[in-house]
Amino acid sequence: MLEARLAQAAVLKKTLDAIKELVTDANFDCSDGGISLQAMDNSHVALVSLLLRADGFEPYRCDRNLALGINLNSLSKVLRSAQNEDIITLKAADDPDNLSLTFESQNQDRISEYEMKLMDIDQEHLGIPETAYAAVITMPAAEFQRICRDLSGISESVTIDASKDGVKFASAGDIGNGSVTLKQTHNPEEPALSTSIELSESVTLTFSLKYLVNFTKATPLAGAVTLQMSNDVPLLVEYKMEGGYLRYYLAPKIQD
């Protein structure tokens, strides 16, 4: 059986908000290491990889591996009933038909109990090769969100150019063109506000802004975001949170 108690409902609520528009149904794979999810969008352009490590829960118990098939829209509806500060407990039997969710207020004067039907999802896991990326860019998550939103007003696509001079986000469309260049900064007092660029070679890749804007729904989960890129391979966008991560992979646009 699974029993996982999470101190802050907000973590799960924000996580669901960050993935539910990309993925409709997904298996939450529960093991003694924690709860993970890997799912692609319908067009196979983007992939979401979530890990909530066991040590992020207190307590966490999972006797044997379970795949909880969940409609993310349904889970999101149920989680709307949880306050951000509530303590959430997830429970499932071995071979479950239902997932039980309990929301307790901080001072335990209100306990809400929900049961959600599970579904059978036949999901293929893709093998994601270990990649030593040529460019690793860490920047404030809010900055990345703003850049994607602003450039999406100009074009459907953005070209990200990482070089020793900085990282340049550039878009060109019918109304004109625009770009934002970030230089490396150091803000030792607030590392989350710094931009760092580690580069082994220059990288230039073009991506759909529709997907990137979607990924930035994870902004409330983390102060910083890391973009990892190599020429001709998918982009990795990672939001690290306490007790886990939310990663997105995005296939590049290629020359016709």
Binding site: I128, P129, T206
Partner: peptide
Amino acid sequence: TGKQSTLLGFFNKP
């Protein structure tokens, strides 16, 4: 602005 590729060419099915 180029053709959208998919992840299937990059990531392997097990």
